[in-house]
């Protein structure tokens, strides 16, 4: 059983908002002094994969496409239990749009050979587009399920809980299949110290655009006609005073009740 988890490196979505700098001129966003992370939704996907590995045994391979991918960041996936890491890195892959990333992923998958299950996060914390996984499914022509919160392998088939409003749908599919995973799966486990050390030493595959035969004419960058900081929603917070928490609680009740 080979599970591919597609993981994107993104600026930390949990960075302090003051560290996020929007440059409208260059249409760039930087998180000043904040390290990038693996897209948290992709971490959810990895967690889902690892649970299958725990349960059924599986080889989990994490693949990441981008430009200037930080191995230090991506190696965290090895530290938590992925078996291999493939980094597909090229300057041409800078801010690719979803369909292009899906295309590059499909080329990388070709090189990797057989697989049974592909898991991706529901969307990435940078552009929040939520398209890559689904398009990859289209390219590969395999069964695709969006927004699952649980994945299991039963009798050689994948069974997943697909999120619906106020409900879930239990679905089943043949393999290979692609599922996009939602955060409800739960957070990625913590690495154990010993694995961490191994993870920084483990050899990984680093491929270039040429290595996987990417046709650069097919690559399209994200482009915007404008990028702006969000509207300022800052409110002047009035802190409820009180000598004890209880008193503060009472005071709040009075204020809310009064107005």
């Amino acid at each position: 059983m080979k599970i591919i988890v597609c993981a994107k490196q993104v600026p930390d979505p949990e960075a302090p908002y003051t560290a996020v700098q929007v440059n409208s001129d260059t249409k760039e966003i930087s998180t000043k002094g904040v390290a990038p992370v693996i897209n948290p939704y992709d971490e959810n996907a990895l967690e889902a994969a690892l649970r299958i590995k725990d349960e059924n045994g599986a080889e989990v391979v994490v693949i990441s496409v981008g430009s200037k991918i930080s191995q230090a960041v991506l190696r965290r996936s090895l530290a938590v239990g992925a078996d291999n890491l493939v980094v597909v890195d090229s300057p041409q892959f800078k801010s690719l749009d979803s369909s292009s990333i899906a295309y590059v992923l499909s080329k990388a998958l070709e090189k990797m050979g057989e697989y049974d299950l592909i898991l991706t996060g529901r969307q990435a914390g940078d552009w929040d587009l939520g398209q890559t996984g689904l398009i990859l499914g289209e390219i590969l022509g395999i069964p695709t399920v969006n927004l699952v919160r649980s994945v299991k392998i039963e009798d050689g088939k994948v069974v997943a809980e697909k999120i619906l409003p106020g409900a879930y749908e239990l679905v089943k599919s043949n393999l290979p299949a692609l599922l996009t995973v939602s955060s409800e799966v739960g957070e990625l486990r913590y690495p154990i110290a010993k694995r961490k050390i191994q993870a920084y030493k483990q050899p990984i595959d680093v491929w270039s655009a040429e290595d996987i035969g990417v046709d650069s004419d097919k690559l399209v960058q994200i482009d915007m006609s404008a990028l702006m900081p969000p509207p300022d929603m800052g409110r002047d917070c009035q802190f409820i005073e009180g000598d004890s928490p209880e008193e503060k609680g009472k005071n709040l009740a009075s204020i809310l009740k009064g107005g």
Partner: peptide
Amino acid sequence: FNIANYGIVGDYKEIIPAFNKKWREL
């Protein structure tokens, strides 16, 4: 707190019962 109108720094476990009590009173 940056987007709140009112804020309380503290443990909700202590604050909420007091809030509820006061709310009932009011």
